[in-house]
Nucleic acid binder design. Structure first.
Lengths: 110, 110
DNA sequence: AGCTTTGCTACATAAAATGTAGCGAATGAA
DNA sequence: TTCATTCGCTACATTTTATGTAGCAAAGCT
């Protein structure tokens, strides 16, 4: 599998900084959505697929592998779940949730 | 242009929550990288293009339009720059920068 | 033993990104 | 005022990524 080793990003993202490798990974379709969802508890392949309404099994499988390789999620008997690192990452994505509502409101009023 | 109205996501993302519309937008190639970069000050089309090494002018143009429509960036005489909202958004992306370094370290040691 | 659900793979189609070329407008030097 | 650069794009062909549908093997009911 071709996963971006931090510090050696795949698509030639700027300066090769870790942040760019992370943004590259998170900037793929559904990456953040999956992490967001898994924070509410372990879930199955089909469960995640149902949550991310229009994701295809092909892509879901790919994303799950990438996120696993990156150390954000893992597979247990319960299905897929966030690792310790995954939870830490979620903590940093979480504030966007609140803020997104404000943003959406502003957006409507323009 | 087809931009995801918050609450009415484009690609059928889950539950139609604002967060999902936001994640969908930010989850496009280079979206966060552009915001990250613009935080260091206004910049030109070619400047952003140089920073995001492998972005094509086609995609850059598209992202800039989307981010402008979403209210995160604007065009002034200085080129493109973050709006107030864009700066707020950056504040929420920023913590990822520190954390990304830790993550990259962990990753190496596995 | 049958029936359903689950986690995936195969494969064809559609959408998104890249890469290269180049145009018209603005900028700067001679 | 000319000439060469640079700049912000656009066009368009190619490649990459995602979708959509079908279906299979394994596991779990009943």
């Amino acid at each position: 599998m071709k996963f971006p080793t931090p510090g050696q990003p795949v698509r030639g993202s700027a300066s090769g900084q870790p942040i760019m490798a992370l943004l590259d990974l998170l900037g793929r379709n559904w990456s953040m959505g999956i992490i967001w969802h898994l924070n509410s508890g372990p879930n199955t392949f089909r469960g995640i697929q149902a949550y991310c309404e229009s994701i295809s099994p092909t892509t879901l499988n790919k994303r799950l592998k990438e996120l696993t390789t990156a150390g954000f999620i893992q597979r247990t008997v319960d299905g897929y779940s966030l690792t310790h690192q995954g939870k830490e990452l979620y903590e940093h994505i979480y504030p966007l949730g609140h803020w997104a509502r404000k943003w959406a409101e502003n957006f409507k009023n323009n």
